[in-house]
Design a protein around this nucleic acid. Structure first.
Lengths: 199, 199, 199, 199
DNA sequence: CTTTAAGCGAGACGGTACGTCGCGTCTTCTA
DNA sequence: TAGAAGACGCGACGTACCGTCTCGCTTAAAG
């Protein structure tokens, strides 16, 4: 059938693509980032180096694509934030979970790798915002809008700013390792944010 | 005599040290960070590679030391924040200036380099906090405490948290290039922070 | 019908075969031998690489076949040596012509390529002897036998040896570029050979 | 002492140089020539690739230098040909020995490698002639001149030509594997040469 | 005249080696 | 005798070809 044709066409491509992504994720999670080399990825994926360079221009791009694909695969599910009607409680839940994720070494390393790449490459940064950050932010803003409707958040609050005030301190503290990422800390960020942007 | 020797000795050391720092800063400001190599620094400084490796264990450390020294030279001046008695006005002044700095390319590249290094090296991160971040934060906290005394800031506010809520959004927006660093944005951060932690 | 099939079939095969040979000869004549690659041949011939590998096991074999085919096409003509009745004159004519050929760059490169391949591949060397060298040698020996019959050459001379003494010095001098390939040199080889094997 | 300085200076250099030569010779003797790669040489010599590329521009040049050095080390001894007063006997001795050498696989491979390189690189060919071929030829010519003096060789014979008639057939037969390299063959070349250039 | 399978061009694939760059160490020579 | 200069062993870079493997497309035959 013609249905088979498409998949047949891309089967080999797709197999190597997935092998490359899997190898990249494994290396990023296991190794210091400087040991994540194109050569190591190719070897681990059982793939020629050229197969990587044919598709991506640099190690950064591969790493980014691998982590992006990971998020896209899992992303559809986690995009919706909880909405119990209690914004404060919902945000605390989410912030505590986020803090825990950052503290998990198997998340820490890849996210650091990702941040290292996007900090030094404006094009990757743009792609990151478009493909990863914005969808997440939209989901979060949807929750905030819902809160605005029920009067739990100021109606004229700039939602981008709200999200920054809420998340950026956690992000910075994690990136610079400038303090512990405890539940209490997560809570205090929610409280501060709601004081700033509450009704 | 050893009196002469020591100074002579130190003077030579100091000269090459300054040459290394100058070369490092120049390269960091001019080049993409991956082109900042120990060999390039040594060549530009007119110094043997060993002279660099004798003093610092890695490129990261050199870059960090060069930028640290830069801040320490200039640091004495900017450590004291303005205190006109009007916290909101003082903070807006500082935040607008900070936003401008981040937007300046000749600051942008070095600070990105610095952040790249400390994000991936916990030891450097600790040194960064101790030598650069904490002194600055202490100066800022001094201003906040002064505000608490005159009732412009909640007496029981966690000053570390206040600073994070104030600065982290700006930092994150800059690092991820996720938005413009305008005066209005700087102001809105101050306003949000004062709503959260005001009296 | 199968009668038609064969030819039609052959016609396509033959077209690509000729394209491959033409491309190979062009590349061998134009380029340094290391730049003569299967990929370059395929690209120039407008042919898939597999079409080459389907027919020949290696680049050596293609190059050899291309040059062999060239000789076979032209070969029928030159196989017969002149026989004016004067062996010395006939040999000098042939040797001078041979020397001229070797000096011609458009012959030089292909023949060097051919020699490179057969020097390092015993199987190709055997094929070379069988398909190219022996027919030529037989033609030459026929002329020598004719000379033996009229008493211009020793009747018990080993004709293989005679040919080697006559040609090998020219070949070696060309291969090693160890001296000029002049008419005088060609003549002196004929004279030496006839002194060694004359009546 | 200054005597020590020279050697001290070159000790590391010299050690790696010798290691490279030894590895090259071993590989050339053991492996098919296409498996003799710069990478393999470097690995076997325990040397970085750059150390090879710093000194020689190509694999050809390394192989050539390695084999040249081998000959130069051993060369001083074998340069003098036997001179018993009987040219025919002396030449047969030498030619039989030469034929045996060519038949020895551990000579065959390197000499084929050498010939492959010099056939395709005029510069190497020139160096080969100057450093290897000419000294040997001078030694042989010295023996021939001695023969001329005692009337065993025509006084006006072109000695270059004599040597070519004597050696080139053997060389060509070896290179093209066009016949056996027996003692009888060696003898017949000497006999033919002396018929051509004898008194 | 359609259908079909064989052969083709195109070129991606897993690999190997290339020649270069930079690492961090080691050695030499100079001031 | 410290330091500039830079060679060294090493390992990764990004590229070129290798020989193999799909993939559609063409195309001439058999249905």
């Amino acid at each position: 059938m013609s249905n088979e044709k498409g998949p047949d066409h891309s089967r080999r491509k797709e197999r190597s693509r997935q092998a490359i992504f899997a190898a990249t994720r494994a290396l990023v999670a296991e190794e210091a980032y400087k040991n994540v080399t194109v050569e190591a990825i190719a070897a681990r994926a059982g793939v020629g180096k050229q197969t990587i360079y044919r598709r991506w221009p640099s190690k950064s791009a591969v790493v980014f694509a691998a982590l992006l694909a990971l998020s896209e695969d899992a992303g559809g599910l986690s995009v919706a934030l909880p909405d119990t009607g209690d914004l404060r409680a919902d945000l605390k839940l989410v912030m505590r979970a986020t803090a825990k994720e950052f503290a998990d070494p198997s998340f820490d390393r890849p996210i650091r790798a990702l941040n290292t790449e996007i900090a030094n490459d404006a094009a990757l940064a743009a792609e990151y915002r478009e493909k990863l950050a914005q969808p997440l932010e939209e989901a979060k803003k949807a929750r905030l809008r819902s809160a605005q409707e029920v009067g739990q958040l100021s109606a004229d609050a700039d939602l981008d700013l709200v999200l920054e005030v809420l998340y950026a301190p956690l992000f910075q503290r994690w990136l610079h390792r400038s303090g512990p990422l405890t539940d209490a800390y997560a809570d205090s960020l929610v409280d501060a944010t709601l004081r700033a942007f509450g009704p």
